[in-house]
Design a protein around this nucleic acid. Structure first.
Lengths: 105, 105
DNA sequence: TCGGAATACATCATATCACGAAGTATTGTG
DNA sequence: CACAATACTTCGTGATATGATGTATTCCGA
């Protein structure tokens, strides 16, 4: 999908992916694949940003000899999702404006 | 509204604003105000980008002693709006995913 | 057993882009 | 006469998505 359209959705998508249970990089990418494609470099940039913003916390844990970083959503992270939902009304108004048919042409 | 969310909407908003009839910078800003706020510097950046992409054409014309640049949407510009509408299904799927309630928490 | 796919994370450079700040110039208004 | 509104332009900055590249381990099939 269009890279620009994606920008506003990426952060909340990642937050939504770890909302039900803590998750880690590789799994987040696979879980989001049906909705939005993102590369590893993008994901880790997003995760770093969200951590700095206090929207999630990180815990490193060993899993079958391999290190894994588990990401856990915070209250602020859940709040971010709620804010997104509130903003959606504005987005839908814009969509209506853009997509309405134009009988004069 | 959120700057990131805005990114995917700005170009099509401007195209939609000149779809019914040719318009010019100042008026586009006023017409879009109910939907999306944008500064002059942003608008002229967008207009330049859309012109380079062949989505609109420009015509300079004098109006009461002042120069005005009128912007006219092209076939490709109308096509861009149609593409946006097509992509909206994906966006709505993402919205559903993000906004769905989560009974476990 | 050997090699490649999958898993898992990290870093760097680049290109795109929204926006504030500042500037130029004219018309209308109190 | 000063100030707001109209109208367009340029510059610098910060945010950010992404490809390329690198490191390291586990698992599976030939």
């Amino acid at each position: 999908m269009d890279a620009q359209l994606k920008r506003g959705l990426l952060d909340v998508c990642v937050l939504a992916a770890i909302r039900q249970e803590d998750s880690y990089g590789y799994r987040i990418i696979k879980d989001l694949k049906p909705y939005i494609a993102l590369s590893e470099s993008t994901l880790y940039t997003v995760l770093k940003r969200l951590e700095l913003a206090g929207l999630l916390t990180v815990r490193t844990s060993e899993h079958e000899g391999r290190l894994r970083k588990y990401y856990h959503i915070t209250k602020a992270g859940l709040g971010r999702i709620e804010d997104f939902k509130d903003e959606w009304r504005e987005v839908m108004a814009i969509y209506q404006f853009v997509s309405k048919e134009d009988p004069e042409r």
